[in-house]
Design a protein around this nucleic acid. Structure first.
Length: 582
DNA sequence: TCTTCCAGTT
């Protein structure tokens, strides 16, 4: 067999772009007796496993015929399977590799570890990840940036973010991908403050950012409502030419709309040259959660005109918009359109939107019917809780009790649910009903979810919980709060005693120092006159805090935007954008 | 070779 023939075939393989053509080349390989030439086998496996999707079984066939696969061939087949729908195969090949008759001829290298770890990441195979970690250390690969980055991602995917951080901290050398990876791992683990802290460190170490960094950071800014930092990152994106990156554009839209600035989201949208489904969805969802149903519908229509196919998230955004604006007919129409026009099966969340849509509009029987006709919904506490919420708005005892019974049946009833039903009884002056609910709460010893609020001042995000005393400026904050309450009282604020307070010591003790009040006091004390305060809260705003914030916006002449668990409240001059309906 | 965006979740 001549060397030039082998070289010619390798060249042919390099230009090959289809399986059909590959099979022809393979025929030449066999005719010329080159099937055991390692360079050629390598190229063949690599081509099938990586370059053409769906050829993995063929790659495996060729691989099995290689008598003594070298490291490169093993890597090709492991990589192919690590990215495939069956990553477990990649791990099996890795095991085989270690057990091969002459392991010294094909020792695992950087590539082997990173591909196998990718498979572990996708499979959430923690044990294998730990085993690999040990081997990486023993074989001296822990100095390799790529291997360590793969390791940290693998730990993070398995929920061990602290271990991921440890791996990151111990790296002798880091590249931009490792920085980006730790940021995105934090962001995906909902540890947004940590993600933003990594950026502080990047800045102090003079590491420059790229599109990936920006996307991870913007996503965290969106979640904690860190608008100032988001705006700063927007500036960097424009300056360094990342604005044309569609991922960055989408992350910017999401950040602006989650931080309550839909105008800025729109201008980013308008400036984008390339838009994908994410872009449109971000606009539709953004308008939806702000209660701008008609705007969401407008963007949906534009999206169709631009030739894009909506997906299930598009419809969630649309339904959410219809919901907050009370567009019942439109919402129902879109719900049915999912199947009839786009062949998308509504999921549990779409049903949830429909229940909410009917419920808020007072069509409680219809809402109940939706739950009853969907098998999945009947066993979902969120559905019944939604119905209970609607029953409270419309003071419907009968449906409220049905919802409560089902929550109890599912073992999912919480203190908040009993409070809701108690409110309905109270509205009907049913003292016995209220007493029964109070008793249930006490006897079952429910705990409420701890509420917290963030506020961004400068480039720092400050977090407060109920009756928080942990902030370094606690003394100043509480003194300011006294002053704020006093000035709010002067313009008409009266503390609202809610049923929650009536229920006494089994629920939150004091509505005086709810986390948003502390955040507001802190914001007023530390920002210049006239600055808009933006607060993000994990729960719904309570009646008293809602009223308090309205009066504060008037007394201090400040715009205050509160993003609660479900929607935005924009307080201005004593009035809230939700018109007290939330 | 290692990295990214849209919902909702008590």
């Amino acid at each position: 067999m001549s060397k030039s023939k082998a070289n010619a075939i390798v060249t042919l393989l390099q230009g090959c772009n289809s399986l059909q053509r590959l099979k022809k080349i393979q025929a030449h390989v066999i005719i010329n007796g080159l099937q055991h030439n390692p360079a050629i086998s390598n190229k063949l496996v690599n081509f099938c496993a990586v370059s053409v999707s769906g050829c993995l079984s063929y790659a495996q066939l060729i691989f099995n015929q290689i008598q003594n696969p070298d490291t490169q061939s093993w890597n090709s087949i492991i990589r192919g399977f690590s990215l495939s729908p069956s990553p477990l195969q990649a791990i099996l090949f890795y095991n085989q590799m270690l057990l091969s008759p002459s392991p010294s001829l094909s020792p695992p290298d950087t590539f082997t570890f990173s591909f196998t770890l990718k498979a572990c990441e996708r499979l959430r195979a923690l044990n294998k990840c730990q085993e690999l970690h040990g081997f990486v250390i023993r074989s001296g690969f822990e100095r390799e940036v790529v291997v360590c980055t793969s390791l940290l991602r693998c730990y993070a995917a398995n929920g061990l973010i602290e271990v991921a951080r440890l791996v990151f901290d111990k790296m002798s050398e880091r590249d931009l991908v490792s920085w980006n990876s730790i940021i995105s791992c934090y962001s995906q683990a909902n540890l947004h403050l940590q993600a933003l802290e990594v950026y502080d460190r990047m800045r102090s170490e003079n590491v420059s950012v790229d599109g990936f960094t920006l996307v991870g950071l913007l996503s965290s800014c969106a979640h904690v409502g860190a608008l100032n930092l988001g705006v700063y990152l927007h500036g960097i994106a424009c300056e360094r030419g990342f604005f044309s990156n569609v991922y960055v554009g989408n992350a910017l839209i999401d950040m602006y709309s989650k931080c309550g600035d839909l105008g800025a989201a729109l201008s980013v949208f308008n400036g984008m040259k390339k838009r994908d489904v994410f872009t449109w969805n971000s606009m539709i969802v953004g308008n939806g959660v702000h209660g701008h149903g008609d705007e969401a519908i407008y963007f949906f229509k534009q999206m169709l005109m631009a030739g894009l196919k909506p997906n299930s998230i598009t419809f969630l955004g649309l339904l959410c918009g219809c919901n907050h604006q009370g567009l019942v007919e439109e919402g129902v129409e879109y719900f049915h359109m999912m199947v009839s026009r786009f062949n998308l099966k509504p999921g549990i969340k779409h049903h949830g939107c429909l229940v909410d849509l009917y419920g808020r509009a007072g069509k409680l029987e219809k809402a109940l019917q939706v739950i009853k006709t969907c098998q999945l919904s009947q066993d979902d506490p969120v559905m019944w809780r939604t119905l209970l919420g609607s029953s409270k708005i419309h003071r419907n005892v009968e449906i409220g009790e049905i919802a409560m019974k089902n929550l109890v049946r599912l073992g999912a009833s919480s203190a908040g649910d009993f409070v809701l039903l108690a409110t309905i009884y109270a509205a009907h002056k049913d003292a016995q009903g209220v007493a029964r609910m109070r008793k249930s709460i006490k006897s079952q010893g429910f705990k409420t979810t701890a509420g917290w609020s963030w506020i961004e001042v400068g480039d720092q995000v400050h977090r407060f919980v109920v009756d928080d005393k942990s902030h370094p400026g606690t003394g100043m904050i509480y003194r300011k709060l006294e002053e704020v309450i006093h000035r709010a009282n002067l313009v008409g604020y009266v503390k609202e005693e809610s049923l929650v307070a009536m229920a006494g010591d089994c629920l939150e003790k004091s509505t005086m120092y709810h986390s948003e009040k502390l955040a507001i006091a802190f914001g007023l004390a530390t920002t210049p006159e006239g600055t808009c305060l933006r607060i993000v809260k994990n729960l719904r705003v309570c009646r008293d805090c809602h009223s308090f914030t309205k009066f504060v916006s008037k007394a201090f002449n400040r715009d205050i935007i509160v993003r609660d668990r479900v929607r935005f409240h924009h307080f201005k001059n004593g009035i809230c954008s939700c018109r007290d309906y939330w």
